[in-house]
Structures are given as structure tokens and as C-alpha cells.
């Protein structure tokens, strides 16, 4: 790990000022400390933001909730308001990481997680995230866990968060110090030819909280498929949030995890299903639609199985929430 100075922040504006000068924000540290130990992140200064007053879950005037960026993941999943009104969010968080990590990891840090692509972590491999323009060793490497949607020739990594998949399906909004809020679905960026640009944040900007809009009546589910029963990143996950009225789905939200560099909303599938009774045939068609744009390389596509896995998971999720 490179040497760095450590500064505990006492207020948000001084933290932002330090970051504007090149310091990196440190919260739970469950991702950043690891990346620093691997030499992937090399900040000269860390500004510890964990004592800033951004650790509350508050009711919003319109009936939504505001979750401070420094609320620990365990606390979000334990909060009764979240469990009652946004159960898909609690489920997604509990399906991620381990209890030890969730006790430490914050909501803002979860949002800012970097990919777990093995080539990103291996400094001897080509990676355009670490070294802009360097290419992508995963293209011709072991890419079984990699992306099938929104990829580019520069990067096929996936965003590792479970929480963000649920937030995408809940139409959450990200609040950022000193600028307008951003819908969560616009927060993360697809790689294009700049895979090192992972979010729409400018350097030094600080996520302060996440807003959940008022909960919709209806049902939701988070399903996750992984290589072992627990404590593993998703191969594919699905968050489905559906509002049923008189046997018809009047509002459908489907978000996928493990398939792209951002939580992936299946807008066309949602549209296809809205206003219908979610019968099996339509669900089948919608699942196909959701993966229509999936791309695997002609050769060396260890991840080709993910498209079918995602289709099946979408069908199972929708069959589960329609009753």
C-alpha cells in the first residue's frame, strides 16, 4: 500500500474541499482498503467521512425515504420501514456480501463499488479501467462472470452491487453535494471507450444520500443466482417490482444485475408487460425482449450461458410477483 495521510472529516464542506484537492473519500473501506492493498487505488490522502452527519434514514414529505450515504448496509436491511415498504431493497442487500461486510459497508460505498473483474485486480493484465486505452484482457480471457449487455471492445466488466439492482427497480434518486439529484439508473456509466469513467460524478464529488420515492402498492422480489449458496457475487440477479390492479399490471419495473457495468433496467420488457395480466406467454416474450440486445463474442464467450440464465430468472421473478 502506498503511503497516505489520513484526515478525519468533521463537516461535509471541508471533506469536499479536501477531495477537490485530490483526496479520496474513505467510508466503510470494504472495497477501497482492499484496492489500495492491491495497488489498484493509490490515493495520497484519505478523508474519512464516516463521522459526517449522513447516517440517518428519514421520512420524506411526499411519503418516500431518504437513506444517508453513510448508513451501514445492515442497518438499511434491518430498518422496519425499509422491510415493510421496500422489501426488495432489504432482500437485495441481505443477498450481498457477508454479515461482517454488511456491518461495515455503507450505502454510498456500495454505490461506488468498483468491479470485481479479475483482470482489473491483476496489475499484470491489460485493463482500460486501470490504464485508460490499455484494452481488455477479459475479452480473450476467462470471462465467465463478465457482462453480456452494454459491453464494448474496451471493457466487459460488471457492476458487483446487489443493492443497486433493487434501487434501479425502485426508481431511486442519488443526491450529490452541490448539484442536482441524479436518477440511479443514470448514475453508473457504460464503458464505451472510457471504461475508467464509471459514474457521472466529477472527481471529488460526494454522494450524500439516496431517495426512495413513495412505495407503490404491489409485490416485489429479488432473485440471485451465484456459484455458491451464499457470500458470492451474482452471476445474474433480477429485481422485479410490480403493481397489480384488478388483475392487470399497471406498473412494472425489472432490473438485472451481473450482466452489465451498471444495474440494467429492461425498459422494453417492462413496456410489453404493462397493462397485461402477466400471463406465461407474455412473460416469456418479455424475458426474451430483455436479453435481445445481449452480445457474446463469436469466440471465447465463457459467459454465453448468462443470457438464458437471465431469461429464466426474469420469468421466475415475474411469475412470483403476479399473483
Amino acid at each position: 500500500m502506498n503511503p497516505f495521510s489520513y484526515v478525519p472529516a468533521t463537516d461535509t464542506s471541508s471533506a469536499v474541499a479536501l477531495a477537490a484537492g485530490g483526496a479520496k473519500y474513505l467510508a466503510g473501506g470494504t472495497n477501497l482498503v482492499d484496492l489500495m492493498r492491491q495497488g489498484i487505488e493509490t490515493p495520497r490522502e484519505l478523508v474519512d467521512i464516516t463521522r459526517l452527519p449522513l447516517a440517518d434514514i428519514e421520512e420524506q414529505p411526499g411519503g418516500g425515504l431518504r437513506i444517508g450515504a453513510l448508513v451501514r448496509n445492515t442497518r438499511v436491511a434491518t430498518d422496519e420501514r425499509i422491510r415493510d415498504r421496500y422489501p426488495v431493497l432489504a432482500q437485495a442487500i441481505l443477498n450481498g456480501a457477508s454479515p461482517q461486510l454488511r456491518n461495515r459497508a455503507t450505502v454510498g460505498g456500495n454505490l461506488m463499488q468498483r468491479t470485481r473483474c479479475g483482470y482489473f485486480y491483476d496489475r499484470h493484465s491489460a485493463c482500460g479501467k486501470r490504464d485508460p486505452g490499455a484494452g481488455c484482457a477479459a475479452l480473450d480471457g476467462f470471462n465467465r462472470t463478465h457482462a453480456i449487455l452494454g459491453t464494448s471492445e474496451s471493457c466487459v466488466s460488471v457492476h458487483p452491487s446487489d443493492m443497486c439492482v433493487a434501487l434501479a427497480a425502485l426508481d431511486a434518486v442519488v443526491n450529490i453535494a452541490g448539484r442536482d439529484p441524479v436518477p440511479l439508473v443514470d448514475f453508473h456509466r457504460l464503458p464505451g471507450d472510457t471504461p475508467h469513467v464509471e459514474t457521472m460524478l466529477a472527481p471529488g464529488e460526494l454522494v450524500t444520500s439516496i431517495d426512495l420515492p413513495p412505495a407503490q402498492p404491489g409485490r416485489s422480489v429479488y432473485l440471485k443466482v451465484r456459484d455458491r449458496a451464499s457470500y458470492a457475487f451474482a452471476l445474474v440477479s433480477v429485481a422485479a417490482v410490480v403493481r397489480m390492479e384488478a388483475g392487470r399490471a399497471t406498473r412494472v419495473r425489472i432490473a438485472l444485475g451481473g450482466v452489465a457495468a451498471k444495474p440494467w433496467r429492461a425498459y422494453e420488457a417492462e413496456e410489453l408487460l404493462t397493462g397485461t395480466s402477466l400471463d406465461d406467454e407474455l412473460i416469456h416474450q418479455a424475458a426474451g425482449q430483455a436479453l435481445a440486445g445481449s452480445r457474446q463474442r463469436a469466440h471465447n464467450a465463457h459467459n454465453a450461458f448468462k443470457a438464458e440464465l437471465a431469461r429464466r430468472l426474469i420469468r421466475r421473478a415475474l411469475q412470483g410477483v403476479r399473483s
Binding site: 489520513y6 482498503v33 482492499d34 484519505l46 474519512d48 464516516t50 461482517q100 461486510l101 461495515r104
Partner: peptide, 10 residues
């Protein structure tokens, strides 16, 4: 917590 991922400074 995993003590390997916590800086003593924190």
C-alpha cells in the same frame, strides 16, 4: 467486522 479491511486509524 473483517479487521483486515478496517484501517486502525478509523
Amino acid at each position: 467486522v473483517n479487521s483486515c479491511l478496517v484501517l486502525a486509524a478509523q
